[in-house]
């Protein structure tokens, strides 16, 4: 796998001819060898539907393609970085938290809060929640950023996990999600605020939560 964690905030990636990586633009901090950085219009695969999805979701985080031969260091904003290995699973992650990922992974878009679909999108726009995420699936690895580091919470049948949407980073597994609110929570944070809802994740899998309520 091409990513190696050098410190809590820095990863090293190897690129070789015939392979490519995608990374957030401007997140390269240093490189050695012959490496090209090209702004990517679509962020790789996914085609028009995923582009439209991202446009609607306002998730058009600019990516760049990294190709050539050498090693590249990635880090961004002083955020903690966690490398996630995918072995056939699907990782759901907010696009602006993706520092870099294997070009071999398939990208898509998912709405969190109702299990995807047009109605989900409409709801998302009405509530202004913007809870669309990018999905990555296949075999490869992704470097994910979080403010203050990540804790992993297991999701098990009959044991759902509720997450503050501001602190949500990513999840994988056979997981359903919906927006809920705990007793008293809306009174606490105010009905009008986007924080009034929590993301309920149920099924079987893992959710990554950051040590902060600040979006990146």
């Amino acid at each position: 796998m091409p990513f190696r964690e050098l410190s809590a905030k820095l990863v090293e990636a190897r690129v070789a001819p015939g392979e490519r990586l995608f990374s957030q633009r401007g997140a390269m901090v240093g490189y050695r060898g012959e490496v090209r950085f090209t702004p990517s219009i679509q962020g790789g695969q996914g085609g028009w539907m995923s582009m439209i999805g991202r446009r609607v979701a306002n998730e058009a985080t600019p990516l760049m393609t990294v190709e050539g031969q050498g090693t590249v260091l990635f880090g961004h904003g002083g955020h903690h970085v966690e490398v996630v290995e995918l072995d056939g699973q699907t990782l759901c992650v907010e696009a602006d938290r993706l520092l870099a990922f294997d070009g071999s992974l398939q990208q898509g878009t998912l709405f969190l809060g109702r299990d995807g679909g047009v109605r989900g999108m409409v709801r998302g726009q009405i509530s202004g929640q913007g809870l669309f995420t990018t999905t990555l699936s296949g075999h490869g690895s992704a470097a994910v950023m979080a403010h203050g580091g990540i804790i992993q919470l297991p999701i098990a049948p009959g044991r759902p996990v509720h997450v503050d949407p501001q602190a949500y980073v990513a999840h994988f597994g056979d997981v359903r999600n919906k927006l809920t609110t705990a007793l008293g929570w809306r009174e606490l944070v105010g009905r009008g605020s986007g924080e009034a809802f929590q993301l309920e994740l149920s099924g079987e899998g893992m959710v990554f939560v950051q040590a902060s309520e600040e979006k990146l």
Partner: peptide
């Protein structure tokens, strides 16, 4: 206030 990030 507001410091909850997750719960089960």
């Amino acid at each position: 206030n507001g410091a909850m990030v997750a719960y089960d």
